[in-house]
């Protein structure tokens, strides 16, 4: 698997570290339903078979966080954009 880093170009997956699902966002700790919202945020996942938005960190490269669109059935990567552009990992 090779990930097209917007800074470094296409690089081997071993240069990257994986964080996980990029669609979950950290809830407001002051909200009334914070306990429920944090449970969902920390533990529950859609875990789709198919298109998946995910965070990767280019640890052995430009050290930027990337939002990668990847198909979990084929590992084909449709896009990789900087987290600075798309919103940073929550």
């Amino acid at each position: 698997m090779r990930i097209p880093c917007p800074y470094c170009g296409e690089r081997d997956a071993h240069e990257f570290a994986y964080l996980g699902d990029a669609t979950v966002t950290r809830p407001d700790p002051a909200a009334a339903d914070a306990a429920q919202a944090f449970h969902d945020y920390v533990y529950l996942r859609d875990n789709p078979a198919g298109a998946h938005q995910e965070w990767w960190y280019h640890a052995n490269g430009c050290r930027q966080w990337l939002r990668v669109a990847r198909d979990t059935r084929t590992h084909a990567i449709a896009a990789a954009t900087s987290a600075r552009v798309s919103g940073e990992p929550a």
């Binding site: 997956a13 071993h14 078979a49 990847r70 979990t72 084929t74």
Partner: peptide, 16 residues
Amino acid sequence: DGYNSYAQRGNLPVIE
């Protein structure tokens, strides 16, 4: 391998 997958095949970094 460490990333979400339904592919039933992995990649080279973990093999290494």
